[in-house]
């Protein structure tokens, strides 16, 4: 289990050679306590600048916390950094993290050596990973000739070279084509089933909803909510939107719709048919359909749009102070 307790990270005000820039220090992470269990995908969400990448870099031993503790299976990430590094790996989207003038296979071979992967198993693991990320045909091509997506796929293979017990994924599907991103999600889900603990940040919230059993939402370094994606969305009491189109106008229907107590917008569609848009914290689709039919209306279209995790995150993130 990865456990962070009261994690804080403060960046000092920038200095030039001769003077301070005049800015103030930045608190990127502010008292964050998280648990990332093995065998599950945990999400870490927030708007840009929320502190997600800093948190991941601290857990990955790349940065030291200002205060607070982080342990990985009981190992302290500052004191036992080398032992922690054997148990984790980080895949960051949109960053190179691989050598452009080596081939894909040479990159994995080199990183395998850095992780002390036994030579007897390294060759087979490299082939397996190249297959996994769809690069077997480009294995012996220089990375500088790879497309951005291919580099990202190689970076994913690099992140799996040491068979980490915990995988930190910072926007892993950034820049990937949809089929490759889908394959990666399948790989992540499979790794979690096999017992790997995964911490995922992603701007693609559908990805988070699909993979994560538990999500932490942070804003300006502070934890603002946590729970399953469904619970988080329900907890915000954001409105469900129901769009209704009738075959023809019926005064009794308008009365029935109004009686539901929701916020209602009325109008006409392109073919001149009456439309209703209802917004309510509860899903009123069933009640609406029943009321319309009882009032003698003929439904042409009924579409329900529940609030998404993205809506919930935006609602939770307080507006940034104007300075």
């Amino acid at each position: 289990m990865i456990v962070t307790r009261e994690l804080r990270k403060t960046y000092p005000a920038k200095r030039t050679l001769f003077r301070r820039s005049g800015g103030t220090e930045t608190r990127a992470v502010d008292g964050l306590s998280l648990s990332i269990p093995p065998g599950a995908v945990t999400g870490l969400l927030g708007l840009n600048g929320a502190g997600k990448t800093t948190t991941i870099k601290i857990i990955a031993t790349l940065l030291h916390p200002t205060t607070g503790t982080i342990t990985v299976d009981g190992l302290d990430v500052v004191r036992d950094a080398r032992a922690v590094r054997r148990r984790i790996n980080l895949i960051a989207g949109g960053e190179r993290m691989v050598y452009a003038r080596l081939t894909g296979r040479e990159n994995l071979w080199y990183f395998g050596q850095l992780y002390d992967v036994p030579r007897a198993t390294l060759r087979a693991r490299i082939d397996e990973l190249l297959e996994l990320v769809g690069l077997p045909d480009a294995a012996d091509t220089l990375v500088e000739r790879y497309s951005r997506g291919m580099r990202q796929r190689l970076s994913i293979a690099r992140g799996l070279i040491n068979q980490p017990a915990y995988l930190l994924l910072d926007e892993p599907t950034l820049g990937l084509d949809a089929p490759i991103a889908r394959d990666l999600r399948a790989v992540v889900a499979r790794l979690a089933q096999e017992g790997v603990g995964v911490l995922l940040t992603s701007h693609y919230l559908a990805e988070v909803e699909e993979l994560c059993g538990h999500v932490y939402v942070i804003d300006r370094g502070r934890l603002v909510a946590e729970g399953s994606p469904t619970a988080l969305t329900a907890g915000t009491r954001l409105p469900h939107t129901v769009e209704l189109t009738l075959a023809e106008a019926a005064p009794a229907v308008s009365v029935a719709v109004g009686a539901l107590g929701a916020e209602v917008e009325t109008g006409l569609d392109a073919e001149g048919r009456p439309t209703y848009v209802l917004r309510s914290p509860d899903d009123l689709a069933g009640e609406l359909a029943t009321a319309v039919v009882r009032a003698g209306g003929a439904i042409v279209r009924l579409e329900v749009n529940p609030p998404t995790l993205e809506d919930a995150i935006l609602a939770m993130a307080a507006p940034a102070p104007v300075s």
Partner: peptide, 14 residues
């Protein structure tokens, strides 16, 4: 400069 410092530091190699 080549963007590999993090992957280098991330590895347990001394």
């Amino acid at each position: 400069r080549e963007g590999t410092l993090e992957s280098q530091v991330l590895a347990p190699a001394r």
